[in-house]
């Protein structure tokens, strides 16, 4: 681009080029690949982490960008997991089409529930997201003939990807499967948040009164992003179902909805990368704490949360941001 050194072009240029890829955006992917070589015995855990990052990314889209506070994201995660799981348990183990089916069904649940609940906002909306997840949880519990109920879904047979790459014990296929799916979804989400649609979501979060006043169809925008986010959460659930070969009722639980928010808050909300930082941190912390303190490990997670919200609002990335600015200011 031609560099015209005037203030006008500087302001416009900064704005116009904000969606450009920056070097540090390669970091999560470099770390993921490094982890593959560094910890070959932990690949199944790594694959789960990658799939959970996608789940947190889906939550970031609604919470961090559109400002929809939800405690029901597990509804879509679980829907996706059960969709892929039930297909694989009933003779259709092809993973990619299972993934697609999970996305479609979860997005449909997001669309239908969103049509009803997105008419409210704030605390009412929060309660309604909770209710949607609770209803699905109970429905899955009752429909034990299909879902296996409390015992979980048994007998999934997931076929090799493209008929070639089998999901083995060592989790290599799982790892790359999750990595590639996460990467593609991340590309899409990144594209979305930098688009006028994505910016208008931020506008809705910042000031919904003003968004109405500039003629934006606020309800439709929120419904669309809620549906997309539900689809992504569904893909995430399907990834975990297919790579672990099991779906339990906990995939629809309130705990899962809450945990993903905690992960996101640890990383930093509304930054696109909070999921990439928060999820691994949480999972490592959980692993460490639970080996030191098998019973009370949740206490340490809680303490970590309290410290984070007291001293590092904006999560780890928010903290990095401030330190970076301070360091730059000193120079």
């Amino acid at each position: 681009m031609p560099a015209v050194p005037t203030d006008a072009s500087a302001a416009i240029t900064a704005h116009v080029w904000r969606h450009r890829y920056r070097a540090h955006e390669a970091l999560p992917w470099a770390v993921a690949l490094a982890a593959y070589f560094a910890f070959p015995n932990y690949l199944p855990l790594a694959a789960q982490t990658l799939a959970t990052i996608l789940f947190a990314l889906s939550a970031d889209l609604v919470l961090g960008y559109a400002g929809i506070v939800t405690l029901g994201q597990a509804a879509f995660f679980g829907t996706g997991a059960y969709t892929a799981g039930i297909l694989a348990a009933h003779g259709w183990g092809e993973p990619l089409s299972g993934l697609l089916a999970a996305a479609v069904v979860a997005a449909a649940v997001g669309l239908l529930s969103g049509l009803i609940i997105l008419r409210s906002s704030g605390l009412t909306l929060l309660m309604q997201t909770l209710v949607v997840a609770a209803l699905l949880h109970e429905a899955a519990n009752k429909a034990s003939a299909i879902t296996g109920g409390d015992d979980g879904l048994q007998g999934m047979q997931v076929w090799p990807i493209f008929g070639r790459f089998e999901f083995g014990l060592f989790g290599r296929t799982s790892f790359f499967y999750c990595l590639i799916v996460l990467f593609l979804c991340w590309l899409g989400v990144r594209r979305l948040v930098h688009s006028p649609f994505g910016r208008s979501l931020t506008g809705i979060r910042e000031n919904v009164v003003r968004m109405h006043a500039i003629g934006a169809p606020v309800f439709v925008r929120r419904l669309v992003v809620y549906t997309i986010s539900a689809g992504l959460a569904g893909i995430s659930g399907a990834l975990i179902a297919q790579t672990t070969g099991f779906v339990g009722l906990d995939s629809l639980s309130l705990e899962r909805s809450g945990t993903v928010l905690i992960m996101l808050i640890i990383g930093g909300v509304g930054r696109l990368y909070g999921a990439f930082v928060g999820v691994p941190l949480y999972m490592v912390a959980q692993d460490r704490f639970s080996s030191i303190e098998p019973v009370y490990w949740y206490f340490w997670i809680g303490l970590l949360m309290v410290l984070l919200v007291s001293f590092a609002r904006g999560g780890v990335l928010g903290l990095c941001d401030r330190l970076w600015r301070r360091a730059r200011g000193r120079r």
């Binding site: 006028p196 649609f197 994505g198 208008s200």
Partner: peptide
């Protein structure tokens, strides 16, 4: 163009 989900604002 407020509903454009693909092309970046820039």
């Amino acid at each position: 163009i407020g509903g454009d989900m693909w092309r970046p604002v820039g």
